[in-house]
Design a protein around this nucleic acid. Structure first.
Length: 576
RNA sequence: GGUCCCGUGGUGUAGUUUGGAGUGCACGCCGACCUGUCAAGCCGGAGGUCGCGGGUUCAAAUCCCGUCGGGACCGCCA
């Protein structure tokens, strides 16, 4: 049907008779017998000179056959790759008529996202979406190549699996053949990839679709794609190397540049310096430790287990209103309050609370934060986790660069705690999942009998972070039944409960489990970062809105009564 | 569960602070003109439940309350 792609025609093609197919991007009429049609396909636009175009409207689908010729002297368009040539002596075939598009697709100006999703098939024609879809395909391809080259085998795991109560909320699918019973859609292939290890697959990978019924965000959809991988007889460092290779290959496939070795940072350092386990290291404004400097303070608000601050360069020009809003924001994030200080000439601090602080304390703040004239210092005092959390969020709020700035700062965050906190009953809450291997040096701390010691146990879990986004996480798994039993006991999970939930995995481990470790990272997030997009919907062909709706298909929808009956279901009336 | 922002012809926006006739702009659309344009140009035209409901007022796009939809975030996401 076609001999060439629109965007590919060049001076070398002059003299050839070609057929091109595509959509009418624009039409410029010059009287009855001369008109220009810009015909667009996924490769770009080419100008076609036709004898009248009055019945060729925007977005009509055409096949145009003609001769490639150089443009007349002085009419080249340097803004187009095809701008030195045009297709002349055209025969035009209308393959499809089209109503005027519901919104412009020439990339000029933003269109309301809901409109774009309502007519996604039109939106996908845009240069932006074509670029993002193809970029994503290149990333997938590079990842598959990299994993294949490292000896990984692609194994597909089921979409209809058993629900487990841990982790995110499951999407469930009612069973027709077993009324009242449900499948769950996988939050990840976690247990299956471990079964693959027991099965001697040695190195497994999959670009897996994962589903979690949690609230949506700019970087979270119900369904998302992960590079999921697991390998036997390997260390944490081996897994990091495998994954770094895949990410580097994907990055190189898009940018042409291969990122250098990814640095590592411990979880504790990330929390103390950036107030986040996924630090955005593209900018400074790091959290500064002030606790010791106020150990004997007279200022009640600073008599707290932890005092930390950040320095906002040039932030001293914020108005009182802006600072009040910032304080309110900090309170909404959980702080008791927010102390702000403007830095004047000579380093003297202006603040409503300055009068409660000694000269030495004020000087200490300036010294510790390195604040200079015109800066703003923000200080939070509270329990340590809360201080980190609030200052970490303030730092992002006030300093985070746009996604397209600062390059790609890949970073491994290592030595996560095994348990993130104790619950009301004093039982530890796993930070990762209950199959995560404790750090070899910390295993003894599991048995001291002091619950506080448990919180200091490091795990062999590691995250890959880039520009403040958690790309993925992984861990060395427990393959020894005695260690696994100990963890379950600490978590308050009885043998019966463990068997009920994970019996098939524990049973599998009885038949010879190799030591293994793995990782998974979010393809959507990596692609968004590489595409310079602030949200992953821009790199997903048919995403959901924040409320989980699809404006195009109207999903989710009600199903008819017979269908419900067949599944043994009854819909309850809505409760307010 | 919570906080904040947004909603005006097909699209994007100005107007909202300080109430006074659906008021403007750009693009698109329809018709006419136009033989070298390329964000074509030029002339004319059509197109509106100011998201929806209620309230205040002589008068509401504008102020108040509620609601729906979209977005950002906190919680949530082992």
């Amino acid at each position: 049907m076609r001999t060439d792609l629109c965007g590919a025609l060049r001076r070398d093609d002059v003299g050839r008779t070609v057929s091109v197919c595509g959509w009418v991007q624009s039409r410029r009429e010059h009287g009855e017998h001369l008109a220009f049609i810009d015909l667009r396909d996924h490769t770009g636009v080419v100008q076609c000179v036709v004898d009248g175009a009055h019945d060729l409207r925007s977005e009509y689908v055409l096949r145009i056959t003609g001769t490639v010729r150089p443009r007349p002297e002085g009419t080249d368009n340097p803004n187009l790759p095809t701008g030195e040539v045009e297709v002349g002596d055209c025969t035009v075939e209308v393959l499809s008529r089209a109503e005027p598009p519901p919104f412009p697709i020439d990339g000029r100006g933003d269109v309301d996202e809901q409109h774009r999703l309502r007519h996604r098939y039109v939106d996908l024609r845009s240069e932006r979406m074509q670029r993002n879809l193809r970029l994503r395909a290149r990333v997938n391809h590079a990842i598959r190549n990299a994993m294949d080259a490292q000896g990984f085998v692609e194994v597909e795991t089921p979409m209809l699996i058993a629900s487990t109560p841990e982790g995110a909320r499951d999407f469930v699918v009612p069973s027709r053949l077993s009324p009242g019973a449900f499948y769950a859609l996988p939050q990840s292939p976690q247990l299956f990839k471990q079964l693959c290890m027991v099965g001697g697959v040695d190195r497994y990978y999959q670009i897996a679709r994962c589903l979690r019924d949690e609230d949506l965000r700019a970087d979270r959809q119900f369904e998302f794609a992960q590079l999921d991988a697991e390998a036997s007889f390997v260390s944490q460092a081996d897994v990091q190397a495998f994954i770094s290779e895949a990410v580097a290959a994907a990055t190189e496939a898009v940018t042409g540049e291969r990122p250098t070795v990814f640095p590592s940072m411990t979880w504790l350092e990330a929390m103390e310096r950036f107030g986040s386990d996924k630090p955005d290291t593209r900018f400074g404004m790091e959290l500064v430790e002030l606790t010791e400097r106020f150990s004997a303070t007279e200022f009640n608000a600073f008599k707290a287990p932890c005092v930390k601050g950040i320095c906002v360069p040039g932030g001293g020009d914020k108005t009182r209103k802006q600072l009040d809003d910032l304080t309110e924001q900090a309170k909404r994030w959980g702080a008791k309050g927010l102390v702000w200080m403007r830095v004047g000439a000579g380093g003297e601090l202006t603040s409503p609370v300055a009068k409660f602080l000694s000269e030495g304390e004020l000087a200490g703040i300036v010294e510790a934060t390195g604040a200079a004239e015109g800066d703003l210092v923000l200080i939070v005092a509270d329990e340590r986790p809360r201080v980190r959390h609030v200052l970490g969020l303030l730092r992002l709020e006030l300093g985070r660069p746009p996604v397209t700035e600062g390059g790609l700062q890949f970073l491994w965050v290592v030595d996560f705690p095994l348990f993130e906190a104790l619950d009301e009953a004093g039982l530890p809450i796993p930070a990762h999942h209950p199959f995560t291997m404790p750090h070899d040096e910390d295993v003894a701390l599991l048995d001291t009998g002091d619950p506080q010691d448990l919180l200091t146990v490091r795990s062999q879990a590691y995250d890959l972070v880039c520009n403040g986004w958690e790309l993925g996480s992984g861990s060395v798994r427990i393959h020894r039944p005695d260690v696994q039993a100990r963890i379950f006991a600490l978590l308050g999970i009885s043998d019966e409960e463990a068997n009920a939930k994970f019996g098939f995995l524990l049973e599998a481990f009885r038949y010879g489990a190799p030591p293994h470790a793995g990782f998974a990272f979010g393809i959507d997030r990596l692609v968004a970062l590489l595409a310079g997009e602030e949200n992953i919907r821009e790199v997903i062909a048919f995403p959901k809105t924040q409320s989980g709706q699809d404006p195009l298909t109207k999903a989710p929808t009600a199903i008819d009564a017979r269908h419900l009956t067949e599944l043994g279901l009854r819909v309850l009336p809505k409760v307010d």
